[in-house]
């Protein structure tokens, strides 16, 4: 490996009496090679995302050429117009928005109360409750969805926004609760107590002191719940079987289904995918760092 040789060379250099060792040519060259490698890998990783956006501007005829068109020159918004043409996108969008917003509202309120309980109170069963939340968060939907479907069917909640919301809320509450717990624990109870000494009631102290400090945590958790519900595919596939009740991921699946045998309008599909992905990418950038620190726990901070 060239890293080894260059490092050895520079360590030999640091043994010389000069205090600040000069950067050797070999090291500079290998530095450029590493930079080049990093950029090349970045291009590989970003390519599918780029390809989605690029293709979304190109006409079906252009996309069917045997040579790919690498840049969207001469593209148009035609595909985006077509996405709206038959109304199925708008329908799926409204279902997705309904389920997602309901899930976020339910999950945030419920998880926030739970987070208060485990970070501000020590009670019998607290440990078991935390353990249960952590375990449930790991359970795969695929190991439950048949039973969940049977249950929804017996309650008459198949193809129903409320039914899907119930399943989504249960799926996101454990992690949302865990994430919020970190934020609540970060606001010292002494702050609230000091405000109470100054004459505020417990509720007032909470609303005026603690709550504003928790706002960033609540936003981050809400975005997490939003992303989960917006992107979810597995449970929706089982529970929303009616074509009129499809969420956006199911709508996208409908577009590429049987693409092996049927001509697919890839420009349209890519425009649809872009519209599903863009809000997610923006939200994701906002909360990414907070989410991953919750997942890996203290290990990263060690």
């Amino acid at each position: 490996m060239s890293a080894t040789t260059s490092a050895r060379r520079s360590s030999a250099g640091s043994a010389s009496p000069v205090r600040k060792p000069k950067v050797s040519t070999g090291r500079r060259v290998s530095g450029w090679l590493w930079t080049l490698l990093a950029v090349a890998i970045a291009l590989c990783w970003i390519f599918p995302v780029y390809w989605m956006v690029n293709s979304s501007f190109l006409s079906t005829l252009t996309l069917q050429r045997s040579t790919p068109t690498w840049l969207p020159f001469g593209g148009s918004l035609e595909n985006f117009r077509n996405v709206f043409a038959d109304g199925s996108f708008v329908k799926a969008l409204s279902i997705s928005l309904g389920v997602t917003l309901l899930t976020v509202a339910v999950a945030i309120v419920v998880a926030f109360l739970g987070a208060l309980a485990i970070s501000r109170f020590r009670f019998k069963g607290r440990r078991s409750f935390i353990l249960a939340m952590l375990l449930i968060q790991m359970l795969p939907a695929e190991g439950m969805f048949i039973a969940q479907f049977k249950m929804m069917a017996s309650w008459g909640l198949v193809n129903n926004i409320l039914g899907l919301t119930l399943l989504y809320a249960a799926a996101v509450i454990p992690f949302t609760l865990w994430m919020l717990r970190g934020f609540v624990a970060g606001v010292p109870a002494e702050l609230e107590e000091a405000a109470m000494v100054d004459g505020l009631s417990r509720t007032q102290a909470f609303l005026r002191i603690t709550f504003p400090l928790l706002a960033p945590g609540l936003v981050a958790s809400a975005v997490y719940a939003f992303l989960q519900a917006w992107n979810e595919f597995t449970i929706a596939l089982v529970v929303m079987q009616d074509n009129d009740m499809r969420t956006l991921p199911l709508w996208l699946r409908g577009l590429v289904q049987a693409s092996a045998t049927r001509e697919t309008d890839w420009g349209l599909v890519m425009a649809g995918s872009t519209m599903v992905a863009v809000p997610v990418i923006i939200f994701f950038m906002i909360v990414q760092s907070k989410m991953s620190s919750g997942l890996v726990g203290g290990a990263v901070k060690g």
Binding site: I41, M52, N231, F233, P249, V276, A277, V280, F284
Partner: peptide, 17 residues
């Protein structure tokens, strides 16, 4: 940024691509 963009892609959208 490249890694974040790939990570942020909704799985259904990335699968169509």
């Amino acid at each position: 940024i490249a890694l974040l963009l790939a990570w942020a892609m909704p799985v259904a959208a990335s699968m169509t691509v």
